[in-house]
Design a binder for these strands. Structure first.
Lengths: 163, 163
DNA sequence: GACGGGTTCTTGCTTCGTCAAGCAAATACC
DNA sequence: GGTATTTGCTTGACGAAGCAAGAACCCGTC
């Protein structure tokens, strides 16, 4: 719809939400990333990849899975895994069943690195996020946030899902 | 704290919040930006600069103000305003009172462009965000979100503040 | 008046991530 | 089997944004 017919403007309350959301979108990633970079010499995206791999049965994931899990393009993931590979944290091995596919495997060094970075990142998350949230109704907040990205209110609530 | 002493891990509920928050951080900006790019051939950051300028008394802001308002580095803003200037939407004029300073001024063309893009962006915001939020308690949500970026719960709630 | 220290912005370089194009393996169809 | 299409990943070219260093300027002191 190139020239939409002017939907109704945001209410005061909606504007407040947008203002806060804007800051979240722009600053939270940078704050978490900066902490990790400063304390652990690791970028947030690198950390996420290691984490995703570590949470998988055999510490293996296809490149495409990894890209989807990290909400990144495949080419972006190629480069990111390339960096991690050159650091020795990940190995890329061709998929036996499908010669086109590549599996990213978390190495022991990679797992060690993740375990090393984990407390620092956790502290950062607590400091920036949960410390300010008080006694808020977290499930309700999570549902509201999840709704915004199209994830239905359900997804995987109760039990252990993949992350 | 390079090697923090293992703070307590996230609870199930906290993990759910983080998961949702992660997706918000990574996807919301991209979705809003993609919509604006597709429908209006304008990036979200360009839009924000035009909006900030339009909400100011004389459609003028110092570069540094603008950078702070957009949570961007000054150098990033220099380049962004450079682009907008070359499009004719902004003019950069040296500050009379302070020869170092530069004022970014929104041109008539820039204001027109903003007004043109506005409905589309508003629709995008409604579609991606508020349409999924149902009858949620918006002030409470806004407060929770604002808390995460260090903005105290107060800031400027009631009356007309600068944005 | 000019010197030094602190602003304010700009510029050079680097990094990250995207898109578009390419290559190779797999699959579908004849 | 042999050709055509699709899929999975990588590569090339590029844009956006950051940092660090530079340039232009203000201001207080001598």
């Amino acid at each position: 719809m190139p020239t939409a017919p002017a939907p109704k403007p945001l209410s005061q309350e909606e504007q407040a939400v947008m203002r806060a959301l804007g800051r979240i979108m722009r600053m939270l990633p940078r704050m978490l990333d900066a902490d990790l970079e400063r304390d652990q010499r690791m970028s947030l995206s690198e950390y996420q990849v290691l984490r995703h791999l570590s949470e998988t049965p055999c510490r293996v994931m296809r490149m495409s899975e990894l890209a989807a899990a990290a909400d990144m393009s495949l080419s972006g993931m190629t480069r990111l895994v390339g960096r991690l590979e050159s650091l020795g944290f990940v190995e890329r091995i061709r998929c036996e069943a499908d010669g086109r596919g590549a599996n990213a495997v978390l190495t022991d060094a990679g797992l060690a690195r993740l375990r090393e970075a984990w407390p620092s990142h956790l502290a950062s998350v607590r400091r920036h996020i949960f410390d300010h949230l008080g006694d808020l109704d977290l499930p309700r907040l999570a549902a509201a946030l999840a709704a915004m990205t199209g994830d239905g209110p359900s997804a995987c609530d109760g039990a252990g899902c993949d992350e």
